[in-house]
């Protein structure tokens, strides 16, 4: 019987396992090797240099500059995105009751999810345009003209402008995720809470939040990983890392080294570090939020 089972499973699993091996695992293995070479990325000539590239990273201020920005985004993006999408999803779906027009909000807020990051970056570059941009125009109209900034040209603001876009573009997705989670929470829990005199907020913190733990875990891992990436938005909105490299991130710096500076070996070493950081992050988040599962 057992043998029969494997005879059935193997033909189904093998193709995808092969594809995964060839296109995911093998490149990882290759990258590990390239990171130990001084490869320019043009020929098969890959002089082995041991851990030189990793040593160089320690003294590379451009690397640390980029890493700092990633670290900052790692703190800001997940918390801001999760907080906002929780708020919106609670307003729309908690306890099966939502605001008027909830259906429209739910659909509209998902729009950014269907656009590519490049399109989003280009559109927001227009919003942030210093002279004809919607943002500065809006500030002028409501009499706050003194708050106008050259958002993408100012080292103090460029990273925050990009962070805003990153949050804006992901809130909709997590909102849908949380709404799905909330809808699976039995409404009689809320009815009971209401009978006991709990406010909407009290119900949110007492019932919704604890029962959404799995969804929150997923959201934090996803947003954490995207905070470690941010390549597309930075590349579009702050090419070359923005003014004074104030919006540079590791992924863009790595790209620049590999494809513009012909330092493929070093860039790969940075990629390996990025991989390790991502793994550590995911494991940490899962460990920290690991509790006993609640069945309902």
């Amino acid at each position: 019987m057992h043998h029969h089972k494997y005879r059935l499973i193997i033909p189904f699993v093998l193709p995808s396992a092969l594809i995964y091996g060839v296109f995911v695992l093998w490149p990882y293995a290759q990258a590990l090797y390239f990171s130990l070479t001084r490869w320019r990325g043009f020929s098969r000539n890959r002089p082995f240099v041991g851990l030189d590239n990793f040593e160089r990273m320690l003294d590379d201020r451009l690397f640390w500059n980029a890493l700092e920005h990633n670290a900052l985004m790692l703190v800001v993006l997940p918390s801001a995105t999760v907080a906002l999408s929780l708020l919106f999803s609670a307003l729309i779906a908690q306890g099966g009751r939502g605001l008027r027009g909830a259906e429209i909000y739910r659909i509209v807020s998902f729009f950014p999810q269907v656009m590519s990051a490049v399109v989003i970056g280009v559109l927001w570059s227009f919003v942030f345009h210093p002279n004809i941009g919607v943002l500065n125009g809006f500030l002028r109209v409501i009499g706050l003209g003194s708050l106008q900034r050259t958002w993408l040209g100012d080292p103090q603001w460029v990273l925050w402008a990009i962070a805003l876009v990153a949050v804006w573009s992901s809130v909709g997705f997590f909102m849908i995720l949380f709404i799905a989670g909330m809808q699976s929470i039995p409404t009689d829990l809320y009815d009971a809470a209401t009978v006991d005199g709990a406010s909407r907020w009290r119900a949110f913190f007492g019932i919704t939040l604890p029962l959404l733990r799995d969804h929150l875990q997923v959201a934090f891992v996803f947003m954490g990983l995207s905070a470690l990436d941010l390549f597309a938005l930075v590349q579009v909105m702050a090419e070359n890392g923005g003014p004074s490299r104030a919006a540079d991130v590791i992924a863009r710096y790595m790209y620049d080294l590999a494809f513009n500076k012909s330092q493929f070996g070093y860039a790969t070493a940075i990629g390996v570090v990025l991989l390790i950081l991502s793994l550590v992050l995911s494991v940490l988040v899962v460990q920290l939020t690991q509790r006993e599962r609640i069945e309902f």
Binding site: P130, N131, T150, G153, D154, P243
Partner: peptide, 11 residues
């Protein structure tokens, strides 16, 4: 020109 630093080359 105010705002210059935020523009792309074609803008």
């Amino acid at each position: 020109m105010p705002g210059t630093e935020g523009l792309t080359h074609t803008e």
